[in-house]
């Protein structure tokens, strides 16, 4: 009987908590339960969610990507530089950013696989490198139309409408202009990565690598290629996050995106607790991101001061980790 309760709480505890939160905020904060508020929550978690899905792929192969936040801000600056200063079209800017993300992922992967640098150190190094690189072309300044360039000329280019559409367009769902484009992209990426990790043989092999890389290689799995692929997925999703951020802001803001890394890693780790998976998974990551979003939105609407936000996120993360590791170890322990 006790085992059943434990099993049930490990499996559904987090989802029940999520539903409970929604019910509580709906009753306590007028206006929380409604399409506008829901769209706002989704909007707030879309970009961190996309980054978190990428880092989930690296967690699956027992790796870790600390460079995602820096990749996202680099994509933000690169897209601004490309359109405002080099006067490229939206397509070119987007392609440049995606290419940059893939390249960074490839370099991360090669550092880890070929040069045997531990994953945390390799991606930490890459994070510093990118934070530095993105400041060099503009001498540490943000990029906006009309800014004076080092040579004395004025930047003439603008963010094209097509690019801004990516960040600002809202689809008509239930009420007019409700659902923002980044949310749609987030959902699409979440579904794709969920299918990829959970239901394809490539995903299954990646989980095998994460659980026992040696066993995976001894059945003929090209372990190194899958690991590199995981970092490339992570790099590309992070650059998508950066593109969407740029499109929403409409300028190359050097200071934005500071919290992206920690928030998205937190979402991926909270995801371990969802449905008692005790391992990285795309569905859990998306729910984890949503959980943090709902909590912060509800608290804001109940007038909790902004500076309590990080504390709340931290508390949720620690609780989720205890949930995952302590309770599921008890559960497997009971099985023997």
């Amino acid at each position: 009987m006790n085992d059943k309760i434990l099993n049930f709480s490990v499996r559904y505890g987090f989802l029940i908590l999520l539903v409970g939160l929604v019910v509580y905020f709906s009753l306590a904060a007028p206006g929380f339960f409604g399409p506008l508020s829901a769209a706002f929550v989704l909007q707030s978690v879309a970009i961190t969610g996309i980054l978190a899905l990428g880092v989930t792929c690296t967690l699956v192969v027992d790796g870790f990507d600390l460079s995602i936040g820096a990749v996202a801000t680099s994509a933000l600056m690169l897209s601004a530089y490309s359109m405002v200063i080099l006067e490229h079209s939206a397509i070119v800017a987007v392609m440049l950013c995606l290419g940059m993300g893939a390249l960074v992922g490839l370099i991360n992967g090669l550092l880890i696989v070929k040069f045997r640098v531990p994953d945390l150190l390799a991606t930490l190094g890459m994070m510093f490198l990118l934070i530095g690189v993105q400041r060099i072309p503009t001498q540490g300044n943000s990029i906006a139309t009309g800014m004076t360039l080092p040579g004395g000329t004025v930047a003439e280019g603008t963010f094209s409408a097509a690019f801004l559409w990516l960040g600002r367009h809202r689809f008509d769902v239930v009420i007019e202009r409700l659902l923002p484009m980044p949310v749609v992209i987030f959902v699409v990426i979440a579904v794709v990565i969920w299918l990829f990790l959970g239901f394809t043989r490539h995903g299954r092999l990646m989980y095998a690598i994460g659980s026992n890389a040696r066993a995976a290689s001894l059945v003929g799995t090209p372990v190194n290629r899958y690991k590199i692929a995981a970092y490339m997925i992570s790099g590309v999703t992070a650059s998508i996050g950066g593109i969407l951020l740029a499109a929403r802001l409409g300028r190359g803001d050097i200071a934005s995106g500071n919290n992206l890394l920690l928030d998205s890693v937190a979402a991926a780790l909270i995801g371990f607790a969802v449905l008692g998976a005790a391992r990285p998974n795309a569905f859990g990551t998306a729910i984890g991101a949503l959980f943090v979003g709902i909590l912060l939105q509800g608290m804001t609407m109940m007038n909790a001061p902004y500076y309590t936000q990080d504390f709340v996120k931290g508390a949720v993360l620690v609780a989720a980790l205890v949930f995952t590791f302590y309770l599921s170890s008890r559960r497997t322990g009971a099985g023997h």
Binding site: F199, R201, R204, L205, Y207, A208, S211, N212, L218
Partner: peptide, 28 residues
């Protein structure tokens, strides 16, 4: 160390080398 994938169930462990044969266009 060399063969068991501890996170997987029996069916996944057994079919690991030949997942390609159990999938339709990559989907298992």
């Amino acid at each position: 160390t060399n063969a068991v994938v501890p996170a997987f169930d029996i069916a996944d462990n057994m079919t690991l080398p030949f997942l390609g044969g159990f999938s339709l266009g990559s989907f298992l």
